[in-house]
Design a protein around this nucleic acid. Structure first.
Lengths: 119, 119
DNA sequence: CTGCATCCTCAGGGATACTG
DNA sequence: CAGTATCCCTGAGGATGCAG
């Protein structure tokens, strides 16, 4: 992707499909990997790869804390850092707004499509 | 892209690379097409195609109002609807947060990369 | 000036299989 | 359980050209 301001990258991680869902779930409480996956699956199918990638981005950005307990079988807890909590709250606000206004948006789309699309 | 809840699409439009920049600029005042393009260009290269696509998405979602004056050469003003203003404010809040915390994020990345990447 | 239509590329991300 | 590695394919999105 073209060169943009560096904060774009952070926004990208945080507002990405799975980023949003991860942050909102972690805002409630820490989750394990598979737990997170199951929870998100109810909304859309996450591949392990993408969930892992998302979590690593967020961890790298200092938003998520990864606590891998040295036991077997592995047990890894993901939780928000203070910084991550701030981010998650911003994102949740946006998500809530989207939910609230979804009706109006859907309506607007109908109007637009009627006027233009298949007039 | 896989099937997700419909509000994901709205978030996608609103938090897209150019969506964010468009909304923030329109929050200040209405803009013409080329004006918007020039303004955004200083941050990253927008193709006409993408700017047009972004504006159409936002218009379709009822967030942006398109006022095409029937003159020649064409003169088109884009501005926010009330709904769009709400969205833009959410997005701006997120963008401002990202700016404020960018230092911490950058720092976290360094730490992460030192510990992992090229240890 | 404001935009559609077309072509083409390249990387995001899904599926699958394997490891500690 | 919690990932990493690989393959592969779709579609986002840049460049260009044309039209009203």
């Amino acid at each position: 992707m073209a060169v943009l301001c560096p904060q774009r990258l952070t926004m990208e991680h945080v507002t990405s499909r799975w980023g949003v869902l991860v942050l909102i779930r972690l805002l409630e409480r820490p989750h394990r990997f598979a737990e997170l996956r199951r929870s998100i699956r109810s909304v859309g199918p996450v591949s392990e790869k993408m969930l892992g990638q998302t979590l690593r981005s967020l961890e790298r950005d200092g938003l998520v804390d990864r606590d891998a307990k040295p036991v077997v079988p592995p047990h890894v807890d993901y939780s928000l850092t203070d910084l991550g909590r701030e981010a998650a709250e911003q994102v949740r606000a946006l998500a809530l707004w989207t939910n609230e206004r979804m009706g109006q948006v859907a309506k607007a789309r109908e109007v637009y499509d009627t006027a233009n699309g298949r007039a």
